[in-house]
Design a protein around this nucleic acid. Structure first.
Lengths: 343, 343
DNA sequence: CCCCACACTGGAAACGTTTCCAAACGAACC
DNA sequence: GGTTCGTTTGGAAACGTTTCCAGTGTGGGG
């Protein structure tokens, strides 16, 4: 916290050569070995390291990428952040964390703020999307990659997953292990994931393979454990004519954990009485007791893909918008173990 | 992703006034109302927003703060990050996430990299500390706040907690509910938290209040669930003369969860047979079954305090290094419920 | 009626870097 | 030995902003 930093000019003076040569010598190209040696020595003596701001101004590159989500604490986003950082850091890019806020309007503001050019690209995972946001993204002065639903028609780079199909996989798995009366605990329908997952559940339970079986939905206020607990209580207290639920599909690992707790309160054993599936395949679900069967949406993989996409874009590759899709896959664990293997 | 952005010069031309006046009009000070109006209009028409890089270069302020930890995925750090972001964002500061790596050397490198001035301050929570790191921090060209142990003697701003005392609280609580044979599952001793927690356990179990009771330590390879599971198995399979363990203090929530799983495997019920405490009071522990009694070290609070400290420092307040201490406190939950209230 | 103080404006410098351009130098070829 | 080419070097501009300084104009007070 002292000693104002050395500048390139000072290095040049110390080495007794011109500013231009100094820059070249340090940066590496077009300088004689003698010059490089000389400048390096001077730089080392002064403890010089190039000022990022000056360089950014000249090069029109900040070497920063922003990652924006509504809630940085959400395990899914944490996993993405980690993956993004892992991809970007080796390329010399820093990651700036930002919050989209919970409304579309605040997300639009965020995208607009890119106008001040503090970042070379943005990876954003919006909870809700509308035309204004799409338009703002299209107008953005730097590459923007959306993690969420595919925005192919809109001509925007996106990394998506098919969470509807993922819910289908969960339902298929439950049917396969003999469950017939399946409840669905979903989050708010006005969010992109909420809507998609509802579609997935409705489609799966109206398919021929499900014919004759029973399905109902209960909606939680939020994608949290607390909301899942409340919704789980409501759902499992219902008394369908077809008989009690023997399985619950949750739209989320956190909701699933809430549901499992609700089941416990009501004296139901998981998975014996009720099998439960989650979605996102988070660490918290993996270590839970019983460990949670969950549909992985490849959070880390999506993060990596998005980061790579930004990297490509920043490299001036002007191509049509790319759509990358990461397929969901089911990780089967204790919460849906076959009856005989459950202790 | 189009239209090269408008510059202040263009706004000035459009408004038909000088560059200087334009800047003043937008920035707010010393311009006539008419001028402000005129410039504002021009800026709006051009969709102007000031370039962060140019401004940074001139003002010698990046309006960015870095937060560096070994593992961004760790729930404790996520909580800190969230808190830091909440404090900094309203002040117009962006948060850059960085990784310290797992060695002291790489942390030193990171601190040195501050020399390139891409950030106005740094909040770092190093797993391990040595003289080289302390020296690097002292030499750093921007304010650095350390979250971890107190660095008062070294004259470095720090936000610390007394995790040793925290372990003491856990032990006291266990003694209070009648547990007499307490095991301790700790992480690596060569980390700052590992060392402190061991000290805390040793102190607590050698105090008069503990006289006559039994204590043993088992060391996990890491602060993870998997390591906790392995260590838990080892510890609980021991057969002390004093009788089987009726409580385990874990240095960490993740370790605690591993221990609980190990107990389950060995047919031991928590909390009836073995009470278990964790540390950090993470969400994952709160929602676990049984919910985890845990020593809160105030992660969010520490994050907030550190952010505030950086903010003060950036505001040129040159004062002696500050030490902020956040007291630990115990959150009692199901994993140490009294025998009679356990179902 | 003159002068002074004040509010406002414009010119220009500065922040630290990279890179374009021209000049200088040496070597190689005819 | 003169010309040409290629390599290396230095001067200077540029990136976009804020702010110092001097200058202009207006108002009011003497």
């Amino acid at each position: 916290m002292s000693s104002s930093r050395a500048t390139l000019i000072q290095v040049a003076e110390r080495a007794g050569v011109s500013l231009a040569s100094t820059s070249r010598a340090l940066h590496g190209t077009g300088a004689s070995p003698a010059m490089v040696e000389r400048v390096r020595a001077a730089a080392a003596e002064l403890g010089y390291s190039a000022d990022a701001t000056g360089r950014s101004l000249r090069m029109k590159r900040t070497f920063q990428v922003a990652f924006a989500v509504a809630d940085i604490g959400n395990p899914v986003y944490v996993e993405m952040l980690t993956a993004i950082h892992e991809v970007l850091a080796p390329h010399g890019y820093r990651v700036v964390v930002m919050s989209t806020g919970h409304t579309v309007a605040s997300t639009v503001d965020l995208v607009r703020s890119l106008g001040s050019g503090f970042v070379d690209g943005l990876i954003v995972s919006p909870l809700r999307t509308d035309d204004a946001l799409v338009e703002a993204i299209r107008q953005a002065p730097v590459p923007v990659v959306v993690i969420g639903r595919s925005l192919e028609k809109q001509g925007i780079d996106s990394v998506s997953t098919d969470s509807a199909a993922g819910i289908g996989q969960a339902v298929a798995h439950l049917v396969e292990i003999g469950r017939r009366r399946i409840g669905f605990v979903n989050g708010p329908l006005d969010t992109t994931p909420g809507a998609a997952r509802q579609r997935g559940f409705d489609a799966a339970t109206s398919s021929p393979a499900f014919a004759g079986d029973h399905a109902e939905t209960e909606r939680a206020d939020d994608f949290t454990v607390a909301a899942g607990l409340a919704a789980g209580r409501r759902l499992l207290s219902r008394d369908p004519e077809a008989g009690p639920f023997d399985a619950v599909v949750a739209a989320n690992d956190l909701l699933a954990i809430g549901v499992i707790r609700a089941a416990g309160e009501l004296g139901l054993s998981v998975p014996r009485d009720v099998a439960v599936t989650g979605m996102d395949d988070t660490e918290i679900g993996r270590v839970f007791q019983p460990s949670l069967t969950s549909v992985s949406l490849g959070s880390a993989e999506r993060g990596r893909a998005a980061a790579q996409l930004v990297l490509d874009r920043v490299g001036d590759v002007v191509e049509p918008a790319q759509q990358i899709a990461i397929g969901p896959h089911l990780a089967v664990r204790e919460s849906t173990a076959q009856e005989e293997s459950a202790r």
